[in-house]
């Protein structure tokens, strides 16, 4: 692989790092922030399962994303990914709610506009549709799960100390599931735009073949792992204090329901099975983890009778729908101009 190839991949790695630093924290924030699980254990579980999810099941959502616009040069992909990552970082800095999904979609649309490629309206409406379904589905799952968990806990009458032990177990499993789903669904945001221009070739080792795309997802997974290891602790501590007002068990409900939403929109196996049964299936596209989480928090609030419903959260979702993609699209458009005219790179064919 050429050095230029690696250089151009760097913006994807940056996006991966950002995913690891921010979104991974949503999964283990409650557990680590309250010291129920030590950071190092959380980081290892997170890194391993994000990478597994990305390599095993990441391709489905990436394909869904590629229908939106197939960025056809490595330099173009570099700019698209870089613009999305910068938007995420900038919006995080100023404290605005942000999602990598919305950023990458905005950046791809920015590339489409610049290159004069048509934006597939079916693919776009499918993805934007999931921005609406994601939080709603998250709310519905969390709502049901909350009642199930509460009924079970009332029946079994576990001692607080034993419950604490089970809660830690559940946090580990929910965290692993959350990390896997995040890798499976959101790794598309990190390396998805590089898929058509992947600099990796298939290779076989001891009879096992790893495709170029899988290698790409592995690299994305590793970048995310670095993000988890280097930066997520700070975010986890903040989230822990914030999200934890929910109580540890409701935090688990939120994590599981968020992970389920991401999983539903990433699992090819599930889609094939639902299709074969003649049931409506979920499109394989990246959805916003933070918005699914917000939806889940609202679901729990509603299950509790809606007394603690925080309407500011709903406003955050709406801001995310509009502000992030628009900012990423504009940034991408401007950056493509510079890349083409100042750095003399081919950003589209």
């Amino acid at each position: 692989m050429e050095v230029a190839g690696l250089l151009f991949l760097s913006s994807g790695l940056y996006m991966g790092w950002s995913l690891g630093a921010n979104d991974a924290a949503n999964i283990f924030g409650a557990a680590v922030g309250t010291r129920m699980i030590p950071f190092r254990s959380a980081a290892v579980i997170c890194a391993v399962f994000i990478t597994l999810g990305a390599v095993i099941s990441g391709a489905g959502a990436a394909e869904g994303l590629s229908r939106l616009g197939a960025v056809n040069t490595l330099a173009g992909a570099f700019v698209v990914s870089g613009a999305a990552a910068t938007t995420v970082m900038w919006m995080t800095r100023v404290g605005l709610p942000v999602s990598t999904t919305q950023a990458i979609v905005g950046a791809i649309v920015g590339w489409n506009l610049y290159s004069g490629s048509p934006t597939d309206s079916t693919a776009l409406s499918k993805i934007v549709g999931t921005w609406v379904y994601g939080p709603i589905l998250g709310a519905a799952i969390a709502f049901v799960l909350f009642f199930v968990v509460r009924t079970v806990l009332r029946r079994v009458k576990v001692h607080l100390i034993t419950l604490d032990k089970y809660t830690r177990f559940a946090m580990i499993f929910a965290g692993a599931f959350g990390a896997y789903s995040l890798g499976a669904n959101n790794m598309a945001n990190v390396v998805g735009v590089f898929v058509p221009v992947s600099p990796f070739r298939d290779f076989t080792f001891m009879g096992l073949t790893m495709t170029g795309v899988q290698q790409l997802f592995l690299v994305g997974g590793l970048a995310t792992a670095v993000g988890v290891a280097t930066y997520s602790k700070k975010v986890m501590m903040t989230i822990g204090a914030h999200l934890y007002k929910l109580s540890p068990i409701t935090a688990i409900v939120v994590i599981v329901s968020t992970a389920t939403v991401l999983f539903l929109f990433a699992s090819e196996g599930l889609k094939l099975w639902l299709d074969s049964m003649g049931l409506p299936s979920f499109p394989l596209v990246p959805v916003s983890q933070s918005q699914a989480a917000v939806g889940s928090v609202i679901g729990v609030s509603l299950a509790k009778g809606g007394r603690n419903l925080n309407l500011v959260l709903l406003r955050h979702i709406f801001v995310g729908w509009v502000a992030t993609p628009v900012a990423a699209a504009i940034l991408c458009y401007v950056a493509l101009f510079f890349m083409q005219n100042v750095f003399m790179q081919t950003v589209y064919r």
């Binding site: 010291r35 699980i37 030590p38 254990s41 604490d164 032990k165 830690r168 580990i172």
Partner: peptide, 9 residues
């Protein structure tokens, strides 16, 4: 300590 912190599983 870390082992213990995992909840005395």
């Amino acid at each position: 300590p870390r082992f213990e912190a995992l909840g005395g599983i």
